[in-house]
Simulated assay, not measured.
Amino acid sequence: MKYSCVQLNDLPDEILLIIFKQLDNLELLYSFHDVNERLNKILHDPVFTSHLSFVKWSLNEIINKFSSYIILDRFCLQILPKIHMRIKCLDLESESMKNILDAADYPNLYSLGLYNIEENIAECLFTGKYI
């Protein structure tokens, strides 16, 4: 029997969409963003960019999905500025909230989930008043 080597880029877009829909949006964007134009086109689909959640549940508490600042920096400097127009919903944890909100303008954002945020910080954020 002869074995063939099929690479990710050899798969049709429809198959890639089926596979990618089973994976986490942020991990997909981090892993495949700017690999090539074809993958960028697929990953920039609203299915993968409209709702981004930077939080995860861990033993009844919400924590930052990425503990590494290297990953967060890549999102803030390279990925979010390129997809900011497509983002409609963001879930953020207080630790990374400032970096993510400062990374780009989000003109189509209609839902913002803020987790583990102190009341006085939330008040400053929504009123523009500083402590």
Score class of each variant (00 low, 15 high):
P107W: 01
K129F: 06
I83L: 05
T127A: 07
F20G: 08
K2D: 11
H44G: 01
S96T: 14
I100T: 05
I63V: 15
L43A: 05
R74I: 13
D24T: 02
K88S: 09
A104I: 06
V6T: 11
I117S: 04
F32G: 09
Y106F: 15
K65W: 04
R38L: 09
M1A: 13
E27L: 07
E123Q: 13
P46H: 05
E27A: 01
Y110E: 10
K56S: 07
I121Q: 08
D34S: 15
R86F: 00
K56C: 09
E119W: 09
D73F: 00
Y130R: 15
K88H: 11
D24V: 04
W57I: 15
F66E: 03
L109H: 10
L39C: 03
L90A: 06
T49C: 10
M1R: 12
I42C: 03
V6K: 08
V35S: 13
S58V: 13
F48W: 05
E93T: 09
A122F: 09
E61S: 12
E14W: 00
P107L: 04
Y115H: 14
D102L: 15
L26H: 05
S94I: 12
L59I: 14
P107F: 02
K2Y: 07
L112D: 04
I19A: 05
V55T: 15
E37M: 14
D13Q: 10
E14P: 00
L16S: 01
C124E: 15
I62R: 08
N40T: 04
V47H: 07
I70S: 13
V35D: 10
R86D: 03
S58N: 14
N64C: 13
N99Q: 15
N120W: 11
Q78S: 14
L90M: 08
F66K: 03
L77I: 12
L77M: 08
S4P: 00
D24H: 03
Y30R: 09
L23W: 07
F32P: 06
P46Q: 06
F126D: 10
D34P: 05
E37V: 12
K21V: 00
L101T: 06
L125C: 05
Y110C: 12
L114E: 01
N120K: 12
Y30P: 02
Y69C: 15
K129V: 11
N9Q: 09
D13W: 01
N64S: 14
D102A: 15
Y3N: 13
D24A: 02
I87M: 02
N36K: 08
S111R: 13
S4F: 07
L39T: 06
N40D: 11
L16Q: 02
I70W: 07
I70Q: 13
D13K: 11
S96P: 00
N9S: 07
A104H: 02
I15D: 01
V6I: 14
N36W: 06
D45G: 09
M85I: 11
F32H: 11
L28M: 00
F75I: 06
N25D: 05
V55F: 03
L125A: 05
D102V: 10
V6S: 05
F48H: 07
D105P: 10
I63Y: 06
L52I: 10
L11S: 03
E14R: 06
F126N: 11
I18Q: 09
E95P: 01
A104F: 02
M97C: 15
K41D: 05
H33R: 11
L29Y: 01
F75C: 05
L43N: 03
A122P: 00
